[in-house]
Each structure stands twice: as structure tokens, then as C-alpha cells.
Design a protein around this nucleic acid. Structure first.
Length: 108
DNA sequence: AACTAAGTGAAGT
DNA sequence: ACTTCACTTAGTT
């Protein structure tokens, strides 16, 4: 069985992710800087597990190039469709695999 | 405990 | 497009 232990790092990530307002998104890099980490990749690593979904809105975190990034461990397939749909419901629209409105990026 | 590989990136060349 | 950087987690030895 899996013992899901939350590390210090993950806690920071989750707590910060929760501060993203509904209708906005942020990037792995921005989030990383916010918690004083220089590796955006580590953020994705933590979000991937996301033991608190949807309490922790991991779907509001995208890549810095405005592509959706990944969702539930993958970067393609139905997972991404679900991510995009979730965001659409919140008013964050994607077109051709890219974020339409760059003003929707939340900067803490 | 130490090492390796991979992961929902980012930035530089 | 390719390469390098940076950090964590999970698995292997």
C-alpha cells in the first residue's frame, strides 16, 4: 500500500497553489519563484500527486509558454481535455493549445 | 545511505 | 530545435 506522506516542499506548493484565484492561472516558474525555488520542474513533481484535488487547483498551473502543461501525469490525451475544460468553465480559454488571454496569468 | 532515472518546466544558445 | 540548468520523488542497489 502507498503511504502518502506530504513533504515540506509539497506543503508549500499546495498552499501557494490554493492562492490562485478562480478564473486565473499561473505558471510553474512563477509559482516556483514564489516559494523560493529555482526549479519549476519540482513544482510539477509535487502537483502531479496532488492528494488534495480539487482542493488544490493543480489545473490552474500551466507552462510559461502558455501551453496547458500536463494534467494527472500526462501531457496529452483526455487528461488535457479535462484540464482545458475545467479552465474554460472558470473563464480561462485555450485556443490551438495556447492560452488565449495572457491577462489571465496571476502573479501573486 | 548513496545512486540513478524521470518528471505536469524554464531559459539560453 | 537542441542543450543545459535546477529540484524533488521513487525506485534500485
Amino acid at each position: 500500500l502507498k503511504k502518502n506522506k506530504i513533504t515540506d516542499f509539497q506543503e508549500k506548493v499546495y498552499r501557494t497553489a490554493k492562492r490562485i484565484p478562480k478564473g486565473y492561472v499561473t505558471t510553474y516558474g512563477i509559482l516556483a519563484r514564489e516559494i523560493g525555488c529555482r526549479s519549476s520542474r519540482a513544482i510539477g513533481q509535487a502537483l502531479k500527486k496532488n492528494p488534495f484535488a480539487p482542493f488544490v487547483p493543480c489545473h490552474r498551473v500551466i507552462s510559461s509558454d502558455f501551453s496547458p502543461g500536463g494534467f494527472q501525469g500526462k501531457r496529452e490525451g483526455l487528461n488535457i481535455s479535462r484540464k482545458i475544460r475545467l479552465l474554460s468553465k472558470e473563464g480561462v480559454l485555450f485556443s490551438n493549445g495556447k492560452l488565449v488571454d495572457s491577462k489571465r496569468v496571476y502573479r501573486f
